[in-house]
Design a protein around this nucleic acid. Structure first.
Lengths: 221, 221
DNA sequence: AAATAACCGGGGGCTCTCTCCCCGTTTGGA
DNA sequence: TCCAAACGGGGAGAGAGCCCCCGGTTATTT
């Protein structure tokens, strides 16, 4: 039906319908929650049900599972970046800022990112690279500021912080321990105490950036 | 070998064949490795292949998956108990003993126990109870000794140590990061620095024993 | 407000994986 | 040497998750 006249290719999608946008957002939110609880292998249909949409809607928005995973990761990274920036701005004490960021990141269930690194997850996707740089910049700022102030030991890097926080906050699959969160914050607190200067021991290995993690973590067995 | 038939008539299995015992051991070893790498849902046939036996042999030894999981858990707990006892005996410095035990437990991949707590795992099986008590006793000794010596902060318990070590050493599913081990030991070292007395901050919540974990961790969502 | 086109929802077939049994062959023990 | 217990691999059966189809609904346009 003579859809596109030669002049202007008639805005195909000038504005995706409002409910479509809303549904997409609800899907990402639901997926984030489900991934945290059950891992990224959770059935598509379950995600759709949690989101309150039909499964077809999910497939229309994210034909490939990896698309959905990437979207969730991006969403989480953006939130965590925001947390880092807020902590930097609002906390005068440099180490207090680090503490605040760490506990806040834990509440965002950043540990749920771990299982998404497996398989054929495209770590070099443009969107991811951009978001990762923003995240690293924000946290790097937090770390360096505390190190310059002599509050944070000098032999640790952004990678150490992020990996350890991720590991400590990973949910136990299948079980929903009622006071697991309490534990998490205890252990983060202990870990932070270990991060504080002056150092109480010598660390093996070397400090790592997020870039190091991206490069080294994709060796298949 | 004087099968002592006087009391018990006709020992059905006076001695399981030597190769049968060997195979059973190889199966448990293979299962432990596979569970660490892929989680306890790994296909039976894969475990059998890694163990170098036919799948039927596996089913003959462990008709239920939970039997196999329990055997692996028992095996790991026994090894870790041994580590705790060795560290207690051989290290004069109380905190050094704790450090040594922690790093050794990490090398045993104690974090792989986590995914086995999900679902209908029978936490009250007699064998498990016995082994858990032995483990708790050994680690409790390590902890209390360091606390009495004033080297370990007083507001932590066995549960804190075990859970944190487990979390920090949990493998990233799917990926075999080449220098992940290096990271693990760095983070354990940092965590241990946080455990050392005097305490640098106040902890939320309360110290927990292994018994607390067993009770509280089975609340389904 | 009516027309229209995009969007939504859920039911069902299809495929793929894992489980578990069957039976001929091998191997350890007396 | 004899025998019985244990072994191994192939394959049928079952279950779960994936993805498509099509009638109904809702937001936008004139």
């Amino acid at each position: 039906m003579t859809s596109t006249p030669d002049t202007a290719p008639v805005r195909r999608v000038p504005r995706p319908r409002a409910d479509a946008l809303r549904n997409r957002e609800r899907i990402v939110t639901a997926a984030r929650e489900m991934f945290v609880e059950f891992g990224p292998q959770v059935p598509y249909d379950e995600v759709a049900r949690r989101a309150g949409v039909g499964n077809a809607t999910l497939y229309r928005n994210f034909p490939e599972r990896l698309d959905l995973v990437r979207e969730v990761v991006l969403s989480l990274m953006a939130r965590v970046t925001e947390l880092a920036e807020r902590a930097t701005e609002e906390e005068a004490d440099t180490f207090a800022a680090l503490r605040r960021f760490t506990h806040a990141a834990a509440d965002e269930r950043i540990g749920a990112l771990c299982p998404m690194l497996d398989g054929a997850f495209d770590k070099d996707h443009p969107d991811l690279t951009v978001e990762r740089e923003r995240l690293e910049e924000a946290v790097q700022g937090l770390v360096e500021r505390a190190q310059r102030a002599g509050r944070l030991r000098a032999d640790v890097g952004v990678g150490d912080l992020m990996v350890a926080v991720s590991q400590l906050t990973r949910p136990l699959p299948g079980t929903a321990c009622v006071n697991f969160d309490q534990f998490v914050h205890r252990h983060l607190q202990l870990f932070l105490d270990g991060l504080e200067a002056p150092a109480r021991s010598e660390l093996p290995g070397t400090a790592a950036t997020l870039e190091d993690l991206r490069r080294d973590s994709c060796r298949r067995s």
